[in-house]
Amino acid sequence: MCLARPFKLLSLAPDGLSGVVDAGGATLTVGLILTPEAKVGDFVLVHAGAAIEVLADAEAQTILDAFDDFARLNDLVAPADDPHDRH
């Protein structure tokens, strides 16, 4: 099965139940029932045509920095909160 991927939400259908995402230049229609809070411009995690979570627009650099710290700091059991962490 397809790995779930993050895509940017470009538009919402009038009933809000689906939207169109940018899949690397192509556009895909995805179901948004499980992510009622998704807004245009948000990144959503899409699995088999459905959005299952809304993500923070975190830059790759920041994410990797958090993992660098995690490797270095022996007292951490998980990568620490980063400023983009919405959860």
């Binding site: 397809c2 991927r5 690397g24 230049g25 192509a26 895909l28």
Partner: peptide
């Protein structure tokens, strides 16, 4: 190409 990379990512 970016478009091909996206396509293959989405479909695994």
């Amino acid at each position: 190409r970016a478009a091909v990379a996206s396509f293959i990512e989405v479909l695994g």
